[in-house]
Simulated scan of single mutants.
Amino acid sequence: METRLSSRRNDITGTSGLSPGYIQANLLILPSKYSKDFLDLCHRNPVSCPLLAFTSKGDPHTVTPSTCIKNADFDLRTDCPKYRIYEHGKHIDTLTDLLSHWTDDHVGFLIGCSFSFEDALVSAGLQPRHQVTRTVVAMYRTKVPLMPAGIFTGATCVVSMRPYKLQDVERVRDVCRPYLAAHGEPIDWGWSALERLGISSVEKPDFGDAQVFEEGEVPVFWACGVTPQLAVEAAGNKIDGLVFAHEPGHMLVTDFTVEDLESLGRPVYN
C-alpha cells in the first residue's frame, strides 16, 4: 500500500486522513516472554486495546490473520512513519525505523485505531478538527484504570479527543458505533467529562496537539490505542529488553477495509 511505502521512505509524518476506507493500527512490539501477558491485556480491555493482528516471534514481515497485511512487501520495522523506543518503561528515543533494534525475539501486536472511522465522519459532514488544521489529534492520560494482566498492572487508559457541537454528538456516536475494531463510539463527552476522566486541562494534551474549539463545541472522547504504552510505562523494570511502539498519530495502515469490520469484531487470536 502506498501509505506504508511512503512511511518507509519517510515521506509522511502522521497518517490521519490517509488511505480512506482502510483500517489503521496502533503498534506495540515486545520481547516474546511478555506476549501472553499482553494478549491477556487485550482480552480484558477490548475497547482500549482491540487486537487486529500479531506477528510470530522474530518475523517482521508476516501477521496473523494474513488478510490484515496482504502485500508481500511489508516490514513492521519500517512501515510506520515514526516509532517510540522504551527501556524499563521509559521512552528513551523516537526513530523513523527499527532496523537496528529489532531482534529475533520480538513479537508485534496491531491494535485498532480511531483514525479508521474518520473517513466515515467526513462523509457524514463531521470532519475531525485536527484534519482541518493539519495537526495531530489530542490525546490525554486519564484516571480510568486499565484491567491488569500479568506484568501489566497499575496503568490507566488514554483517550483521544475531537471537538463537536453538542447537538452533533448523537450523530457522531451513530457513525462510530459499528467500528468496534477501532474503539467504537465515544466513551464520554461534554465539559463535565474532564472531571470524570481526570483530565486537568483540555488545552494541554499529553500526546498530539491542542485543538481549537469553536462556539458551542464540547470535547468528545474515545478510547485510544496509545493505552498499551502506558501499560509498558507502568510495568517499568518488570520488562527486560527494548519495547517499541508507534509514535502517537503515526499509525500503521493495514490492508483491512471497513467492510472487514464484522470479522474484526470477533477476537482474531482464538
Score class of each variant (00 low, 15 high):
residue 109 F to H: 05
residue 212 V to W: 11
residue 182 A to W: 06
residue 14 G to A: 08
residue 18 L to T: 03
residue 6 S to K: 13
residue 95 L to P: 00
residue 164 Y to H: 09
residue 18 L to H: 05
residue 105 D to A: 08
residue 150 G to W: 00
residue 142 T to G: 02
residue 249 G to E: 05
residue 220 V to Y: 03
residue 117 F to Y: 15
residue 244 F to V: 08
residue 228 P to F: 00
residue 243 V to F: 01
residue 270 N to W: 11
residue 120 A to D: 09
residue 92 I to N: 06
residue 62 T to Y: 12
residue 65 P to C: 09
residue 123 S to C: 12
residue 181 A to T: 07
residue 29 I to A: 07
residue 233 E to M: 15
residue 135 T to G: 11
residue 156 T to Y: 09
residue 155 A to E: 01
residue 24 Q to W: 01
residue 242 L to M: 10
residue 159 V to L: 02
residue 122 V to S: 14
residue 108 G to E: 08
residue 106 H to P: 06
residue 138 A to M: 03
residue 69 I to T: 01
residue 163 P to T: 11
residue 155 A to W: 00
residue 200 S to E: 11
residue 238 K to S: 11
residue 177 R to G: 02
residue 61 H to N: 15
residue 53 A to C: 11
residue 8 R to D: 10
residue 119 D to Q: 10
residue 81 P to G: 08
residue 267 P to Y: 10
residue 4 R to P: 05
residue 210 A to M: 07
residue 243 V to W: 00
residue 65 P to W: 04
residue 90 K to P: 04
residue 164 Y to F: 15
residue 180 L to H: 14
residue 264 L to S: 10
residue 100 S to A: 13
residue 228 P to A: 03
residue 40 D to W: 13
residue 75 D to C: 09
residue 184 G to I: 00
residue 108 G to D: 09
residue 140 Y to R: 01
residue 196 R to A: 15
residue 265 G to P: 02
residue 256 F to M: 06
residue 156 T to P: 02
residue 16 S to D: 05
residue 116 S to M: 07
residue 76 L to Q: 08
residue 238 K to E: 11
residue 53 A to F: 05
residue 88 H to M: 11
residue 168 D to V: 05
residue 167 Q to G: 09
residue 130 H to I: 07
residue 141 R to N: 07
residue 198 G to Q: 05
residue 90 K to E: 14
residue 190 G to V: 02
residue 76 L to Y: 06
residue 42 C to S: 11
residue 215 E to T: 15
residue 56 S to N: 11
residue 224 C to Q: 06
residue 9 R to D: 12
residue 48 S to H: 08
residue 128 P to Q: 06
residue 31 P to I: 00
residue 11 D to R: 12
residue 1 M to W: 02
residue 69 I to D: 01
residue 247 E to M: 14
residue 105 D to E: 15
residue 45 N to D: 09
